[in-house]
Simulated assay, not measured.
Amino acid sequence: MRRHAMQNQQPNEKKQPQLPVGGFVIDAQGREIPITEAMIQQACTSLERAQQQAAKNK
């Protein structure tokens, strides 16, 4: 029965995309802005689109 009870306890793995991932950027006013997962995903998407556009222009 103990084993069954342990199987029903699922850790909450749902992550908030706005949690800091360990770094900061400094804005124009000198404030530290935490880098979030959403920021990284947006940057990757932008880079991917730019790469695709550059490949089309060759």
Rank of each mutant, 00 (worst) to 15 (best):
A43T: 07
K15S: 12
E32I: 05
K56T: 02
G23L: 01
P34Y: 02
A28W: 03
T36M: 03
R49A: 09
P11C: 06
T45H: 06
V25I: 15
E48K: 06
P11Q: 12
E13T: 13
Q53R: 02
M6I: 15
Q53T: 02
R2W: 08
Q16W: 08
M39Y: 09
K15N: 09
N8A: 13
Q51D: 02
R2P: 02
K56L: 10
G22T: 08
V25K: 04
Q42W: 04
P11W: 06
K56F: 05
Q42Y: 04
I26Y: 00
M6F: 10
E32H: 05
N57A: 15
Q10W: 13
P11M: 07
P17S: 13
G23R: 10
I40R: 04
E37M: 08
H4K: 10
V25H: 03
N8C: 15
R31Y: 09
N12W: 13
I35S: 02
Q42F: 03
M6Y: 13
Q42M: 11
A5C: 12
A43R: 07
K14R: 14
A43E: 09
Q41Y: 11
P34G: 06
E48N: 05
A43V: 07
S46C: 00
N8M: 15
A43I: 03
N12D: 15
G23P: 04
T45N: 08
A54Q: 08
M6L: 15
L47H: 03
P11V: 11
M1E: 11
E37D: 13
E32N: 10
P11F: 11
R3Q: 11
D27T: 00
V21W: 07
R31P: 02
T45L: 08
E13Q: 12
M39A: 10
K14V: 15
E13R: 09
R31Q: 15
A28R: 12
T45M: 03
M39N: 09
D27V: 02
M1W: 12
M39I: 07
M1H: 10
A38N: 10
A5D: 14
N8F: 13
A28I: 08
K56E: 11
Q7Y: 11
R3S: 10
Q51W: 00
Q16L: 05
A55P: 01
C44P: 01
P11S: 09
K56M: 07
Q7E: 15
P11G: 15
A28Q: 13
A50N: 04
R31G: 01
G30N: 06
P17R: 11
